[in-house]
């Protein structure tokens, strides 16, 4: 990377139901500097450099079991590179 400016990564989620709002809260809780913005039907969370979505934190916010593939029901789009999608966490970041 030639300049040192911090690049954001982020996800756009459907602003559809209570569960997605809790998902947003879980992401905010795990990622310092998370910024939440809204458009009709959509909620965007972006963070500097790297975003981690942890199963445990999401489960705490939802009050139920949650599998990381369920994230596919909420996500509309993202920017960055999905570098990890495991049972316990999803990590989105730029590689270089």
């Amino acid at each position: 990377m030639s300049d040192t400016r911090v690049r954001n990564v982020g996800v756009d989620l459907q602003d559809a139901n209570e569960e997605n709002l809790r998902l947003v809260q879980a992401i905010v809780a795990d990622n310092d500097g998370a910024q939440v913005t809204r458009m009709p039907g959509l909620v965007r969370v972006q963070v500097p450099s790297c975003m981690t979505i942890r199963r445990e934190t999401v489960e705490t916010h939802l009050g139920r079991e949650w599998e990381t593939p369920e994230f596919q029901l909420a996500i509309v789009s993202y920017f960055g590179h999905i570098s990890t999608w495991e049972d316990d966490e999803i990590v989105i970041k730029w590689d270089h």
């Binding site: 400016r5 690049r7 590179h81 730029w94 270089h96």
Partner: peptide, 13 residues
């Protein structure tokens, strides 16, 4: 913002 400032900085590598 997302592609030129984000992605293409990665692909520069």
């Amino acid at each position: 913002e997302q592609m030129l400032e984000g992605l293409f900085k990665d692909l520069e590598f």
